[in-house]
Design a protein around this nucleic acid. Structure first.
Length: 466
DNA sequence: CTATGGCACGGATT
DNA sequence: AATCCGTGCCATAG
C-alpha cells in the first residue's frame, strides 16, 4: 500500500507526469484497479509487497482494516475526521473472487463468494439432481446477482425439462440475498415483494406498479402513475418510498441509492465505493473516519533488485530497463499524488459537510469546487477530476456520488419537499420562496419551480390533499 | 391578476 | 472550448 502520502516532488515535473497524474486522479476505483494491474504485469520494474503499513503510524499492520496501534490517535483534533488510505479487501472480503488470481486455491469459508453463499443456504432443500441444476445456475450470475443464461439454455445444457430448472430458480430467488438469480431488477423486486408479504403488509398498488409499470417507476414518472391508478401523486411517492426502503433491485449489491443522482449513471451509483465514511469502530458516538480505498493489497514500489541489476547488464538492454524503471517510478509517484490529493480533498470536504453526512440532505452546504481549490491551493480542474466518477459510502450505508457533496441545490430541494409534504393547503411557488427565505435560503421563484419539477411534484393547483 | 412553463444569458464545471 | 445549471423575462392558462 502507498502509505507514504507526503510528496517529495523535487523530481522534475514532466508533461508525462502531469498527464498521468490527471488521468489517474479522475479514475474510479475499478478502473484504477485495472490500470494498476496492467502496469504491474507489464513492467518488471514494479513490485508488490504483501506487507502493509499503517498509514498513520507507519508500523507494519496485521490483516485488519484498522491499525491496532493507532486506531485511536490522540494527537488529532477530535473535531476533525480521521482520513486514511485503506486497501479494498479490508472491507469487501467476500466481494473479490479469489479464484481469478489463484484458480487452484480452494475458497476458504471466510472469503466465500456469492454462488457458494447461496448454495449453502439451499443445499438442504435440494436433492442431488437439483443441486446440479442449482450449481449450474449459480455459476451463471453476474456481479449484480442476475442470471446470465436463460432457463431454456440451462435446460438444454442439463438435458432436463425447463420446468425443473424453473423450480430450482424459484428456490434460489428466495435465498439471501433475496431476489438473486432473477433475470431483471423487476423480477427481483417481485420476488422480494412475495417474500416480504409473508411477514409484512404490502401497501396496495405496490405489486401492480412493479409488475405493470416498472419503467414509469424507475423513471420517477409519478404523475403518470397517479393518473393510471387514479390516485394522488403524493400517494404514489409514498409507495415509491416504501419500495426504495424495503426492496433492492440489485440483489447482489448493498443498496438502492438515489437513481436520479446527477452526474453519474445508474450503473456507477451502485458500484463499489471509492471512499467510505464511517464512525470509528462503527460506533456512532465516535468521530468520523474516512477511508480512501486503494484497489490493491500491499505496498506498490519500484523493485530495488531491478534497479540494482541495471548496472550489471549489457549496454544493449540497459536502455530498455531504464525506460521501465522510469515508467515504474513515474507510476508510483502519480499514484501517490492521487492519494495525496484525495486525502486532502476528503479531509476538507468531510469537515465542511459533517452535517450533511450525519444529519441528511438538507444540511448540505453548497460549496463550489472553486472555493475548495483555493483553500487547498490546487487548480480547480484538479478538484474537478478528483470529484469526478467517484462514489462515497456514508455511515448510513447509502452509496452516493462524490459530486453530491458539491450539489448546489440538494439542500433546498429537500426543504422544498418537506414543506410540500407537510403543507396544509397547496403552497404556490412564490409562497415557497418566502418560506425558504425565512430559513435563509435565497432562491428565485423560477428556481423553486424547477426543483419542484425535478422532484416530480405537481404544481400547486393540481395538488390535492389526501 | 396569479401561477407556471419556455427560452436565453452568464457563471460554474469539465 | 463545450456543456450544465440557476435565473430573469415573457407568454400563456386559469
Amino acid at each position: 500500500m502507498l502509505t507514504h502520502v507526503q510528496i517529495t516532488s523535487t523530481r522534475p515535473v514532466t508533461t508525462a507526469h502531469l498527464a498521468q497524474t490527471m488521468t489517474l486522479l479522475s479514475l474510479p476505483i475499478d478502473e484504477l484497479a485495472e490500470q494498476i494491474e496492467t502496469e504491474l504485469s507489464n513492467n518488471p520494474a514494479l513490485e508488490m509487497l504483501e506487507e502493509r503499513h499503517c498509514p498513520t503510524c507507519h508500523r507494519p499492520m496485521p490483516d485488519k482494516g484498522v491499525c491496532p496501534i493507532c486506531s485511536r490517535p490522540t494527537n488529532l483534533n477530535p473535531e476533525e475526521a480521521v482520513v486514511f488510505i485503506s486497501t479494498r479487501e479490508d472491507f469487501y472480503p467476500q466481494g473479490e473472487p479469489a479464484s481469478e488470481d489463484y484458480p487452484d486455491e480452494p475458497i476458504s469459508p471466510s472469503v466465500e463468494d456469492l454462488p457458494t453463499f447461496v448454495m449453502r443456504q439451499i443445499a438442504t432443500e435440494l436433492d442431488d439432481g437439483d443441486r446440479i441444476i442449482g450449481a449450474y445456475l449459480l455459476t451463471h450470475l453476474n456481479e449484480d446477482g442476475f442470471l446470465t443464461t436463460t432457463l431454456y439454455d440451462a435446460a438444454m445444457y442439463l438435458h432436463i425439462p425447463v420446468s425443473r430448472v424453473q423450480e430450482v430458480q424459484a428456490i434460489i430467488q428466495r435465498a439471501e440475498p433475496i431476489g438473486v438469480g432473477s433475470f431483471t431488477p423487476q423480477d427481483a423486486l417481485l420476488v422480494q415483494l412475495d417474500v416480504l408479504a409473508e411477514t409484512e403488509i404490502i401497501p396496495e398498488l405496490v405489486v401492480p406498479i412493479v409488475k405493470d409499470h416498472f419503467d414509469l417507476l424507475t423513471r420517477h414518472h409519478f404523475a403518470d402513475l397517479a393518473k393510471i391508478y387514479d390516485t394522488t401523486q403524493r400517494q404514489i411517492q409514498k409507495l415509491a418510498k416504501f419500495i426504495s426502503e424495503n426492496l433492492n433491485p440489485y440483489p447482489a449489491r448493498s443498496h438502492w441509492g438515489n437513481i436520479r443522482q446527477p452526474g453519474l449513471s445508474e450503473e456507477q451509483v451502485y458500484r463499489q465505493p471509492d471512499i467510505i465514511i464511517n464512525h470509528m469502530n462503527e460506533d456512532p458516538s465516535e468521530r468520523l473516519m474516512v477511508e480512501i480505498i486503494i484497489p490493491l493489497r500491499g505496498t506498490l514500489r519500484v523493485n530495488p533488485l531491478f534497479k540494482a541489476a541495471i548496472s550489471q547488464t549489457a549496454e544493449q538492454t540497459k536502455e530498455d530497463m531504464k525506460t521501465d524503471l522510469d515508467r515504474a517510478s513515474l507510476f508510483v509517484k502519480c499514484l501517490q499524488q492521487r492519494n495525496h490529493t484525495m486525502l486532502r480533498l476528503m479531509q476538507r470536504v468531510v469537515s465542511i459537510q459533517k452535517g450533511f453526512i450525519l444529519l441528511g440532505d438538507k444540511n448540505l452546504k453548497p460549496v463550489t469546487r472553486v472555493q475548495l481549490s483555493k483553500e487547498l491551493e490546487v487548480h480547480e480542474s484538479t478538484i474537478s477530476r478528483a470529484v469526478a466518477n467517484k462514489s462515497v459510502q456514508l455511515p448510513n450505508r447509502k452509496i452516493i456520488p462524490l459530486s453530491s457533496f458539491f450539489d448546489r441545490s440538494l439542500n433546498v430541494r429537500t426543504v422544498i419537499k418537506e414543506m410540500i409534504d407537510s403543507e396544509k393547503r397547496p403552497l404556490s411557488d412564490s409562497d415557497i420562496v418566502i418560506l425558504l427565505s425565512k430559513q435563509g435560503f435565497n432562491v428565485a421563484r423560477r428556481t423553486v419551480a424547477k426543483y419542484r419539477a425535478m422532484e416530480g411534484i405537481l404544481p400547486a393547483h393540481l395538488r390535492h390533499l389526501n
